[in-house]
Amino acid sequence: MIPVNTPLLDGNEREYLLECIDSGWISNEGPFVARFEQAFAETVGRKHGVACANGSGALDIAVAAAGIGPGDEVIMPTFTIISPAASVVRAGGVPVLVDSDPVTWNMNLGQIEAKISPRTKAILVVHLYGLPVDMDPLLEIAERHGLIVIEDAAEMHGQTYRGQPCGSFGLMSTFSFYPNKHITCGEGGMVVTDDDDVAEHCRRLRNLCFQPGRRFVHEELGWNYRMTNMQAAIGLAQLERLDAHVQRKRAMGTAYQTALSDTANIQLPLATTDYAENIYWVFGIVLGTNIDQDAAGIMQQLANQAIGTRPFFWPIHEQPVFLNQNLFTNESYPVAETLARRGFYLPSGLGLSTDDLSEVVTALRGCLPATR
């Protein structure tokens, strides 16, 4: 089996974990948490890092710290994992959706201003699959309308926008450290910000909103979203290898691009734009309309050959859990709908070997129409 993701743990992970075990510091109060927070914040050009249990928790914290509440509208892409919308809905807010750009697969910036209303409070930016959103025009829109920007950079470890680190834009940015990310803790997340008060609020929200001097008296509801010292130890070791991981991912993406460039009827990821070079968090493809099968059909063929794949995100406006709440009734976003039905990604983990990549390419080409 060639899995869709194989992590790479070839740095100081074992040494740092043994230090946690030998010292007895395994909880959130251990020293690796603060070390990881500081080092990660510096890497993405932020003043503060707040480590937490996972990327979805980081979004919950960021939405709450931004003051988003009942009736507040938050503009975001429909083509994304459910977490950003779930955080807004749980806070009582209303996700307001835009479609995708068919080339970059990121949110269509041309649709944002038409969605702004007197109730709009924020834009939640989600960078997808290796290329960042074009941030300059988005930030200009937000500034002109007085909107908060929250940047979901979960997939963007080591990526830059016009030379500035992804994760450094807006009031807050969030990251995930799930095993398929460029930096993993197994599970984990991070909120980063330059605002002292926002950072302190995020720390309280992460830790059940305990108060100094009155620990078990609560003025606000938070979560137990603490990161353990052991997770932070792995994260710090992974961060030390980030440049090498980015280089490896880009080499892998280039190899896929070269091998599949003459394959008919599929759309490959955009390699570069004028503001960023693809970091290839994963290597996605979109099937052309003249291929009879959809993504699920081709993925099953690959599974029959012991090759793991994963579908693209399912659009927010088509999620049953939200339709059952009478959200997004009769809304349609055709680009996102096409990406969801005809897009999927190939094995892309840092541990993927050159031989395995070649085997994936051969199998995929065998499932598709003849080359040009």
Results as ranks from 00 to 15, higher is better:
R46V: 11
M190D: 00
D101E: 13
A251I: 00
G130E: 06
L327P: 03
L109D: 05
Q111E: 12
T184R: 02
R206S: 01
M172H: 10
T289V: 09
Y333V: 06
R90D: 14
G186P: 00
Q325H: 15
A65G: 05
C367K: 08
Q300K: 14
G146E: 14
A91I: 01
P311Q: 06
L287P: 08
T273M: 05
H157N: 10
I112P: 01
S56V: 07
G284S: 12
G67C: 08
F210K: 12
Q257S: 12
P132C: 14
V96D: 05
V191I: 13
N278A: 02
P334W: 12
D22I: 09
T289P: 09
W223N: 06
I68H: 06
E331Q: 15
Q111D: 08
G24I: 05
D10T: 11
I141Q: 02
G57E: 09
R341V: 13
L236T: 01
I316H: 01
A363P: 09
N5I: 03
V74C: 02
P334N: 09
R241A: 04
M230L: 10
M107V: 03
A251C: 04
I68R: 00
F216D: 10
R341E: 15
A86Y: 12
R46W: 11
D99F: 04
M227W: 02
G167A: 04
Y333D: 02
T254R: 12
F313M: 08
R250V: 02
V198C: 13
K121H: 09
T338K: 15
L268K: 12
I26D: 12
H48I: 03
C20E: 05
N326V: 09
D22L: 15
R46G: 06
E37P: 00
S56D: 15
V360M: 09
A296E: 07
D196L: 03
E15D: 06
V360N: 05
I82V: 14
F216P: 10
H182P: 09
Q305A: 14
L364Y: 14
A296Q: 04
V321Q: 11
L236D: 01
E140W: 12
E155T: 11
E240N: 06
